[in-house]
Design a protein around this nucleic acid. Structure first.
Lengths: 255, 255
DNA sequence: AAGTCGATATCGCCA
DNA sequence: TGGCGATGTCGACTT
């Protein structure tokens, strides 16, 4: 691997990082092309406009922005602020380049749904290439799955005598997180949330309870228990109005 | 502004982009510090481990990854795949550096909630600095707001004789998208979705209808109409079981 | 390919 | 600041 011949390069022989500063648009195109071909992360910093059309559509006038092109087709346009890119395209896209009339366009396209993102550079200050290498996958703890495990290993956390019968039990309204029985043999539906919940979680639990009462042809009430660290005031009111219950638990037991 | 003295720099005098290749960890620390001070976007590419602790927690063993530090405190750790960063921190964080024992740690911290993200580099291949400049804010079309405007300008799209009375009408269960009256003076609650909807949207509409029937002390049924391009099978079944209605509309009228 | 739901969701608005 | 709901949500898993 040799350093590129363009002026301004700072690549040394054996580094997984390369950068070309102040390239002509033609030199930039070559460098981007090579990076895409080589399966590296490509970054482009320059003055550009951005057009998006697909599930929605948007248009962004010229400004200095930072573009990332991942080997998996992911495309991210970042500005100085915000966690989310100002425009983007998900993994699986095809990257194509188009030079014309003193501009260089990077286009990311996908189908199902049909979507096109076009970043048109009037000027490019730097192109970078990076050989990412990540043998590990991230494991997160403190999730809803952890909360479920915690309850299954100690059902009395819900209440004394609670017996889990199934997880992910299917109903016409979706899968119930934990389906079980209380000390008086009443059916209990448990909906889990890893964090403080609002009205949406109450509605979800209510859906399961209603559908199960229909399905089981039972005159006895099916109990619905929402398990979360806490609830908002409006959610609490909705719980009361619907005859649903709440148990305060968090995924780790540390809070 | 002068080019940094570190070997391998490719910065020219008057560019909004700088890069330092193969810096020592000390030189990298200086460059990152200067970039943070100067309010530029800072990128760091190197071999690192990542630790996160806050709303959840995670740990990532060493690998080559791409770090972005935005002037607003946003912190993004990107790998070769995926649209979302493997680890991150939202805007408003404080960036601090910590050198020790042959490593350089970049730490992003916030409060409410208390969260810490630590990226520890064993090796750094490149540090970049970029002066982003974006005078424009993005406007997206094809949103739920567009769908609302379309209906308000032509209420008969819902049905002949439909009269909107209010938008964002408050109820104890939240704000109703469009609150109105039909040709027979029955109250109508309209819930808008910009795209194909599942069971959650049906539950949301059901919540509003139920609460309004209570609030209005009316024996007459409050009609609930879900407006979206289409519904999933399970959502359709739930609509039928709850006596709710569906009108097919999209935000643009082009689909 | 589509449905369903969780997420360190993020983001914007409003009380 | 917290509550609330939209999002071009994304992503994982199941059918």
């Amino acid at each position: 691997m040799t350093a590129p011949s363009s002026p301004g390069t700072d690549s040394t022989g054996n580094t997984p990082a390369r950068a070309v500063a102040e390239p002509t648009l033609e030199a930039a195109a070559d460098e981007i092309d090579a990076g895409l071909e080589h399966g590296t992360l490509v970054t482009v910093f320059g003055r550009c406009t951005v057009e998006y059309d697909g599930r929605a559509s948007s248009s962004l006038p010229a400004g200095n922005r930072f573009l990332l092109l991942k080997p998996d087709g992911t495309t991210l346009v970042h500005t100085a602020t915000g966690q989310k890119p100002v425009n983007w395209q998900p993994p699986g896209c095809d990257h194509t380049l188009d030079s014309r009339e003193g501009t260089l366009s990077v286009r990311a396209t996908r189908k199902t749904p049909e979507e096109v993102l076009t970043v048109t550079f009037q000027r490019i200050f730097q192109v970078g290439r990076f050989e990412l290498d990540d043998p590990h996958t991230l494991e997160v703890s403190g999730t809803e799955a952890d909360l479920k495990d915690r309850i299954l290993s100690r059902p009395s956390l819900i209440e004394p005598g609670f017996q889990p019968l199934a997880t992910e039990r299917q109903t016409p309204a979706g899968a119930v997180d934990i389906y079980g029985r209380d000390s008086q043999d009443r059916i209990v539906v448990v909906e889990l949330k890893r964090r403080r919940v609002g009205p949406d979680a109450v509605s979800q639990l209510r859906r399961y309870v209603t559908v199960l009462e229909d399905e089981l042809h039972t005159d006895a009430t099916v109990r619905g228990i929402l398990v979360a660290p806490s609830v908002t005031p409006r959610a609490e009111r909705l719980l009361a109005e619907r005859g649903l219950e709440f148990v305060s638990l968090d995924p780790t037991g540390e809070a």
